[in-house]
Design a protein around this nucleic acid. Structure first.
Lengths: 344, 344
DNA sequence: GCTTACAACTAAATGGTTTTAGTAAAAACA
DNA sequence: TGTTTTTACTAAAACCATTTAGTTGTAAGC
């Protein structure tokens, strides 16, 4: 740890009291100009840096926030973290990132650790296992601001920031419909998380609005958290889809992983995209562009989600009076590429 | 920040002294069993959690380390961070991640901030602008352990962990040669960072060892940090390569970004891969598999780099006697896919 | 019976900063 | 001249956990 000079070192060297030095450095009106200059010069010369621990202890604020995410290692999440980081570091807040790895127990452990670590607030994208939110409401009751991002839940009242999954999925499906596809399958993640359920609902609503009967056979849910079994699960799902009497002409895949894996699988089976089957993903991979064929996607403003979530948290920390909580749903953007070209 | 109960709250409640309570909680031999039980029970019931700031201030250790990276938002980096995080959180160390965004000034600012924040050590992958390492050697002189990872430099003596870039590049090139390609171009990043120069050297050595004359026209350096101009720069580079009298039959691309962009470009120009031109990358994108054609790569053990770097730093923090410094170069792994299939 | 040893505790200092309450001297005012 | 105000500073408390150096009271040893 840093063995810097302290206020009392400066005080001794200049024959002043510690409090005078402290005040001189914060440009207090209580200190004469001459003294201020002396202190400032000495501090600069000897690279004085206030001790963060001491200051935090004294102020009861650590100027650090906790961020709990399922996994850092994922392009979309990294972009959101980038947004959080940018907003916070501009305001001299440190962020402490922890990974839940989609485990509820791990998430609870992270919360305890961060709380004990003296964070001023928490930003969290809950694990997919998390159905009980008491570890978070407890935190709130203890006076710690909590903001949800990306993955929302109704089990806790607070600021929430995410993308409008329903609308994004709706637009993806409508795009396929407008391009002449009517038999549209849907590949989703088998979880109760709003990111998944809302996308499913958006898909259903689009079909309904365009008078296409919903066909449960066209919808497949996979466990995307288990990398070991996913490939096989996906292969089976696709085979089943392709074996249907009324074979789907297009697929709307609800997550990054499903989209790219699906594309690879279809390729291997020798299917031409979009001629044999069209594809659109809900995704943020920067590789959508370089895939072959390039993959149409619903793009999420990931950086902005992170940025806004951080903003919400920091204002919550600043004026801790309980303002009415907001849920911000950012719009997605349809990015049309080759994989969903019009049928005719 | 956490408004928990403190030792003195417990002390008052149980009519004990603060020191007794402190000792009871650390299971000191100086405290009687009965008292211990009482204290422990009370602490548990009231969710006592030691104040991290106070403890850190007292101990002169923060149990947190700084991690400076160019950018979080990059699959390879995220994997390394994952490794760092896993090792540290298993040992109750917090990590504070900051981004330099490839800017030297930003990196210096990060270092100051982290130092002031009272970290116990620093893990850094320097920005590509960084040629002066005095901000890091200063840190060392102040007694703060520093470990370099991924991007190494000879301007500072410390533990270093990275991948064997020379050998990896050598193997990539040899792989192409063995598959029948002799006119092999090389696309690299225009920086003096070892990650780039070592790969270039590996490429040259392979050619030399197989009796292929090095042709400077076959080598192109691009500024991959400027996203705005990269596409055009790359397009020009590829055009120039393809216009050569002795046209290259294969390309070894030295970074993730170059590999994927290059693949996309070649596609657009209607070239078949690997028939018209083969490709191998130095890369960690999990999408290598799903690209079309799937991209052969030199895979880097990113998680392991992070893990080992964290390990080196924590041991350095633990026994701060200056052991001899090590440089660990992990082996890469050649992953053969379609883009570099044998010519015949 | 007296010393020694031990068990079970406590007072107080330490770490570095901020802030409250206060002091001394100089300047302003009457 | 005497009082008030202002200026420029200081002492000390507070934040909380840890640890050193004790202080009791009791049991063991001779």
């Amino acid at each position: 740890m840093n063995n810097n000079i302290t206020l009392s070192d400066i005080a001794k060297a200049l024959n002043l009291s510690v409090s005078t030095v402290s005040r001189a450095l914060t440009d207090s009106y209580q200190i004469g100009d001459e003294t201020k200059q002396k202190v400032l010069a000495y501090a600069k010369e000897h690279h004085y840096v206030p001790n963060r621990m001491a200051r935090s202890l004294r102020e009861g604020k650590s100027r650090s926030i906790g961020v709990i995410v399922c996994s850092i290692d994922n392009s979309f999440m990294a972009q959101m973290l980038d947004g959080i980081d940018r907003y916070c570091s501009e305001r001299d807040y440190q962020i402490i990132i922890m990974q839940s790895k989609e485990l509820y127990e791990q998430e609870k452990a992270n919360v305890s650790l961060l709380y004990a670590g003296g964070i001023d607030g928490l930003l969290i994208s809950p694990s997919y296992q998390t159905t009980d939110f008491s570890h978070l409401t407890n935190l709130q009751q203890a006076g710690l601001p909590v903001v949800l991002f990306d993955r929302l839940s109704n089990h806790i009242e607070t600021h929430k920031v995410a993308v409008d999954n329903f609308k994004g999925a709706y637009e993806a499906t409508v795009h396929l419909i407008n391009n002449g596809y009517r038999a549209i399958a849907h590949l989703n993640w088998n979880t109760q998380l709003s990111v998944a359920t809302e996308r499913f609902k958006g898909y259903q609503k689009a079909l309904e609005d365009f008078g296409i009967a919903f066909n449960p056979d066209w919808v497949k849910f996979c466990d995307t958290t288990n990398a070991a079994t996913l490939d096989e699960e996906l292969a089976t799902a696709l085979q089943e889809l392709m074996a249907l009497k009324q074979r789907p002409q297009a697929i709307f895949t609800a997550t990054d992983l499903l989209s790219t894996k699906c594309l690879a699988h279809l390729h291997q089976s020798g299917l031409r995209i979009p001629d044999d089957i069209a594809l659109i993903g809900f995704s943020n991979t920067d590789l959508a562009e370089v895939l072959n064929p390039s993959l149409s996607t619903i793009h999420q403003p990931s950086f902005e989600i992170g940025r806004l979530a951080a903003q919400q948290l920091l204002t919550l920390i600043a004026d801790n009076n309980t303002q009415p909580f907001e849920t911000i749903l950012l719009p997605t953007k349809l990015q049309v590429r080759e994989s969903s070209q019009a049928k005719f």
